[in-house]
Amino acid sequence: MQLTLRVWRQPSPAVKGKMANYHLTDVSPDMSFLEMLDVLNEQLILSGEDPVAFDHDCREGICGSCGLMINGIAHGPEQTTTCQLHMRSFSDGDTIDIEPWRSGGFPVVKDLVVDRSAFDRIISAGGFISAPTGTAPEAHATPVPKVDADAAFDAATCIGCGACVAACPNGSAMLFTAAKVTHLGLLPQGQPERDSRVVRMVAQQDAEDFGGCTNIGECSAVCPKGISMETISRLNHDLLGALRAGAVPTS
């Protein structure tokens, strides 16, 4: 396959970026998208140019490191992660636009790499169950109905990739936050902190320069783990309940 790539190049956050054009020949349809970029980078290095920076690690769709805007769609044309996208999804002669995630909450580090630490801070704000090591009761002390456990699991599969933010016209991190609120809120162990968790997490999300959600649904449609819109409804429900219950944390 022959391809033309138009890639966002930006040496550092302070410098303005622009799209640069590259031509690649001999791309195999069995390559993953990132392997295709590897090939590009080796060529760039040998010709003395700076290789394209992009985040990646596991290359099997689970760590959430990778994430590119490919032809205007987060993670590209298949509903999966960028590392699990294969070149067989493209055709010979295609022009492919590659851009970083765009959000106020995700400042560009270099080229296609963005800083997603805002997600960590959202989790830090309340996305946990306080269970210090050694304090746990016997695991079978509290049965969890299978439906709840399964639904919690569905939400817990979020890999924190940020595609939801990238795709959302409002730049909202709602699906990410909602996935965590849903995961923990469905489990009996998550009940004691349920109210304060949702209030704090939403507050942190708003403070991180993410947009508010207006239920557009782009996020769920590109989410590689198929996190459902139901999680957002659940978050809203929990937040309103928490506000009614007066859970306004003091921090």
Binding site: F128, K146, Q189
Partner: peptide, 18 residues
């Protein structure tokens, strides 16, 4: 025990047990 207390959603059976 520790992981269950933290909310790790291990697979469960219909009776709710692990």
């Amino acid at each position: 025990d520790q992981c269950v207390a933290q909310g790790v959603p291990f697979a469960r059976e219909y009776g709710g047990l692990l």
